[in-house]
């Protein structure tokens, strides 16, 4: 009798483990290089996917440490979403080399290149590092343009449907819902920022050009003299001159950029420094891509409004 009980318990436990395992495997294991891509993947995948981001929301996505724990994460992934415009060039290749996961090899359905189909800006005509750290495929900071996010979402939905055809309808429905929500929100964001169309702004790095193009801002200059090159006093003096001449009153910085440098320039020009993180999760209560853009638009509206 006791033996019977033991068997029963074992069977229940086994069934439990098996069903837990099958539930776990039923969810696609998705790895995104950055939190913004991860958020879009969650919108498209819903409860059918389990998404993790490698870079932290407050981390400079160009300089992520290739930690061995990421090798394990990538080894067990069903899909990898990367920006694709060389943003992750400094850390993703050695991780992939050791991850030994054929599912996420380049060219396969499990490898999702977010930038595919996006008209990238600033594609260099010549490769010359004396111009700073330029990306040969173009500027990779396209996710702050909500229209780019729609293309990214389409790429993700297409690949999810290929990897997991039985849930294709769900992914497509989620894509349609995501697109509709982007359209609605884009209208709101555009209305909110409409009064500041043509506003002159300064950024730390060339990471807001897609946002400027979408919402009609003019970027006067960057605090970095060239992409990836640390601000020098002579260049900052030039930026201060340009800001005074053009009446630029805001400087946009991300959490990993040197706020002190921006504050110094702001003091000289009467401008204000705006915290404008591009990653969901970088500030409290911004867990999704929409939260991140809500926060960004609010910060811009408040900052530019105060300067009016």
């Amino acid at each position: 009798m006791r033996l019977m009980n033991f068997y029963k318990i074992s069977v229940i436990a086994l069934i439990g483990i098996a069903s837990a395992a099958s539930q776990a495997t039923a969810q696609l294991r998705v790895v995104a290089t950055t939190p913004d891509l991860a958020s879009v993947a969650r919108e498209i995948g819903g409860d059918r996917v389990n998404v993790v981001a490698l870079a932290k929301p407050t981390e400079d996505p160009h300089f992520v440490d290739a930690k061995p724990s990421f090798i394990v994460t990538l080894n067990r992934a069903d899909a990898l979403i990367e920006g694709g415009a060389e943003l992750e060039l400094g850390w993703l290749p050695p991780l992939l080399e050791n991850a030994r996961n054929g599912k996420i090899n380049a060219g396969g359905p499990g490898r999702i290149v977010a930038s595919e189909g996006i008209r990238l800006l600033e594609i260099p005509t010549s490769f010359d590092r004396s111009k700073g750290d330029i990306h040969s495929l173009g500027n990779p900071h396209f996710m702050v343009d909500p229209v780019s996010a729609k293309i990214v979402a389409r790429n993700i939905a297409n690949h999810f449907a290929q990897i997991d055809p039985k849930n294709a309808a769900t992914y497509n429905a989620n894509l349609a819902r995501f697109n509709a929500r982007i359209d609605t929100k884009l209208g709101e964001w555009q209305r909110e920022l409409a009064p500041y169309r043509g506003a002159k702004i300064v950024t730390y790095h060339r990471d807001f050009i897609y946002l400027a193009q979408r919402f009609g801002f003019t970027i006067v200059d960057e605090l970095e003299p060239k992409p990836g090159i640390a601000p020098s006093p002579s260049h900052l003096a030039q930026v201060i001159g340009e800001m005074r001449r053009d009446n630029a009153k805001v400087i946009l910085v991300q959490p990993f950029q040197n706020r002190k440098t921006a504050e110094t320039v702001a003091r000289q020009t009467g401008a204000s420094v705006l915290d404008t993180p591009q990653q969901p999760g970088a500030v409290r209560n911004t867990t999704t891509y929409f939260d991140m853009l809500d926060n960004l638009v609010r910060a811009l509206g408040t900052g530019l409004g105060a300067q009016k």
């Binding site: 407050t58 440490d65 990993f256």
Partner: peptide, 11 residues
């Protein structure tokens, strides 16, 4: 062993 804060500039 390495420590790097969550918001690091250029690493």
């Amino acid at each position: 062993w390495k420590w790097k804060p969550a918001a690091a500039e250029a690493g």
